[in-house]
Amino acid sequence: MLRIILQVVGVIVLIPLVTIATLRIDNQDADGPSILFPGGELVSGELYTGHEPDWSFTDDVPTIELQLVDPLSSRTIFVMESDGKVYIPSGYMRSVLGRIWKDWAFQADAGDGLAVARIKGVRYERQLIRVMDGEVMAGVAAKLAQKYSGGETPEAVAAIRKSVADGDTWIFEMAPRDGASL
């Protein structure tokens, strides 16, 4: 009886392990991420050069692809425009699963933050800078609530601002790289 139970448990454990390993390996060198698993370098798409674009077009963009330069991997993330600048969030930062799932955010914060974002097929070379400024956060939280939390209600905005203040959600500005044209 114990043998049967252990064999059943073994199969139950095997299925998710094989699934995760397969999807992870299949995507790791792909041109961009899948829904959940990180991909490789973003190579296709026009590389944007010139003046800082009007980021308001991202209001209609639900997710973008973001690739860190070091370490080289890409993932799908949310995007928000606020006051002419563009931001990305990373949630669940204080949970155990989050620390595994959102490793890119820790790497960006600890490293140089150099990144490439692909939005509607166009690549933008950016630098991720973590933001904690209260005034900036007001607009970012409002846009985050409006796009991804069902509406810009006072409760939703307050919850997001609390999540950022508590460290559960990190916000990065996708700033121009040093020396880039403005």
């Binding site: 073994g10 199969v11 095997l14 299925i15 094989v18 699934t19 397969t22 999807l23 299949d26 899948s34 829904i35 959940l36 698993f37």
Partner: peptide
């Protein structure tokens, strides 16, 4: 277990939309 793993891997890689659904 080996056979199940092979079936699972092949399904994920070659059945359209299965990997997206799982993800």
């Amino acid at each position: 277990c080996a056979g199940l793993s092979v079936v699972l891997v092949v399904s994920l890689l070659y059945v359209p939309s299965l990997s997206d659904t799982v993800e």
